[in-house]
């Protein structure tokens, strides 16, 4: 465990807590894409299949349980909660996210580190996580209004993967045989997808104006 990895996990944790806090306190999911949240729930489900079989550390297990629990409760809130679901704007959340899953699954079957069910599922979760934010970014472009909690959520989500890239660089230079091309390429693509959002987020922060994405 290095500082970049810890910072990444804490930023990731902060992002899901910001989202849960927003939905739980103001009982609204305006501007939040349910599809992205469903994809994240699938990412954790397929990535943590070895939750009970492959014990890494207490920290690892607890974090996995938190991410699984928070992602499923966010999906539940938006789909089932009698108040929150009324603020879900399904006409704006139109990204065909299940179409995204197939290329990830096919790619995971052909490009993986080991052709076993668990490994293919894990690789699928890596590819899926890289593009899971797309429905949310498309929805933001459409609705144009980004309340600051949603903006913070996306910013933290992007920052977590950026910290992971620093973690991979650090581990590459400090641990021999640490090479995970699949994770690295997917992680860089994922972080780049946040690229333009980061740009507009910093612009709005610097000029102290409300965050606006171009049409």
């Amino acid at each position: 465990m290095n500082i970049f990895r810890l910072a990444g996990d804490m930023t990731h944790l902060a992002s899901v807590l910001v989202l849960l806090l927003k939905i739980h306190t103001i009982k609204s999911c305006a501007g939040i894409s349910l599809k992205t949240q469903e994809l994240f729930a699938i990412v954790f489900l397929t990535r943590y299949l070895d939750l009970f079989t492959n014990f890494i550390s207490i920290y690892n297990t607890i974090m996995k349980l938190i991410f699984l629990g928070s992602s499923f409760s966010i999906v539940w809130y938006i789909r089932r909660h009698r108040v929150v679901r009324r603020s879900y704007d399904k006409d704006q959340d139109t990204f065909r996210h299940f179409f995204l899953m197939w290329p990830c699954l096919i790619l995971a079957i052909f490009i993986n580190e080991k052709f076993t069910l668990k490994e293919v599922m894990w690789t699928f979760s890596i590819y899926l996580e890289a593009i899971a934010i797309l429905p949310q970014l498309v929805m933001l472009q459409r609705t144009r209004n980004i309340d600051n909690l949603t903006g913070q959520y996306i910013f933290l989500l992007g920052a977590y993967r950026a910290f992971y890239i620093l973690n991979w660089i650090y581990r590459y230079f400090t641990e021999e045989h640490y090479v995970h091309w699949i994770t690295w390429v997917a992680g860089v693509i994922q972080t780049l997808l946040y690229g333009d959002f980061f740009y507009y987020y910093f612009q709005s922060w610097k000029n102290n104006v409300k965050l606006e994405l171009p049409a």
Binding site: R5, D9, H12, R47, D50, N54, F55, I56, N60, M63, K64, F67, E113, W122, Y164, N167, T183
Partner: peptide, 10 residues
């Protein structure tokens, strides 16, 4: 063993 550390990240 290598296996158990293969996916030690979240």
């Amino acid at each position: 063993p290598k296996g158990s550390r293969s996916h030690d990240e979240l």
